[in-house]
């Protein structure tokens, strides 16, 4: 609110400065109230996420248990105000773990698309706490650049083993958002920049990794998938993001 007042006074000063100097003594200053467009109630965020993966099969793709992810989210306040409200939105994470498993290049890509249902409440003038539930679906794509793989075209190279797995997911998180600042121009939306941190837990269906050649069926040949154990694309996670509300 203090920033809004500051901007209004600045607009008044601008009007005063724009007037001819001679007229300054004769014309009473006109009070111009800078009006802003009403808030849409949208929040866009971009950040990073660190998520602990479950299952021994994840070891083939990472030297530790954590996967780094990019997270993008959009939400809309369906009720309430900036200070208290309920939101609905969508959330997308993309993560990748890559390593070498016994000398073989390995990679595991994760994509999670979730529907987000959240609530927030301002507890201090710059601090808002929030919580959310996010049901969704997660897609895992595991790949190996393994040279013992048969080529359908025996003169080909760079063949890989791969597997794609879809699973239902649900995550719950709670966190806090710190308001960094606002940009308020007359007759424009007030844009507010936030830094958010949240932690939570994600549940998702496990899969037993069985990577097979991605070349399709070959006549007279039966391919045996490479079994790498189970992976559970969910667990403890932490999100850090920058968010913009307007």
């Amino acid at each position: 609110m203090r920033l809004d007042v500051t901007l209004s006074l600045a607009a008044l000063a601008a009007v005063c400065c724009a007037a001819p100097p001679l007229a300054r003594a004769q014309v009473q200053p006109e009070l111009v109230q800078a009006e802003h467009r009403p808030a849409v109630g949208l929040e866009l965020s971009l950040g990073g996420r660190s998520e602990r993966m479950g299952g021994g099969g994840f070891d083939a793709f990472s030297e530790n248990r954590w996967m780094a992810e990019l997270t993008m989210a959009a939400s809309y306040r369906i009720t309430g105000s900036l200070d208290d409200g309920l939101t609905i939105g969508a959330l997308w994470n993309h993560g990748r773990a890559a390593s070498r498993a016994r000398g073989t290049d390995s990679s595991l890509d994760l994509d999670r698309l979730s529907l987000s249902l959240g609530a927030h409440r301002t507890v201090w003038r710059r601090l808002t706490v929030f919580g959310r539930l996010a049901p969704g679906a997660v897609r895992l794509h595991a790949g190996l650049a393994e040279t013992s793989i048969l080529n359908a075209n025996q003169y080909g190279t760079n063949t890989t083993l791969s597997q794609t797995h879809w699973a239902l997911a649900m995550e719950a998180a709670a966190g806090a958002a710190f308001r960094v600042g606002q940009l308020a121009r007359p007759r424009e939306h007030v844009f507010t920049l936030w830094l958010t941190a949240e932690g939570g837990y994600a549940l998702a269906g496990s899969t037993t990794l069985a990577l097979a050649s991605n070349q399709g069926p070959v006549p007279a040949r039966t391919d045996v998938p490479v079994q790498l154990g189970t992976v559970t694309p969910g667990g403890l996670f932490m999100n850090f993001a920058a968010a913009l509300t307007f």
């Binding site: 016994r102 990577l211 045996v224 490479v226 189970t230």
Partner: peptide
Amino acid sequence: GADAHTAVAGILLEGTDAP
């Protein structure tokens, strides 16, 4: 007489966690 065969890859890659 028959070309049918089974192809196995990554024999040493399957870890102790594999089923």
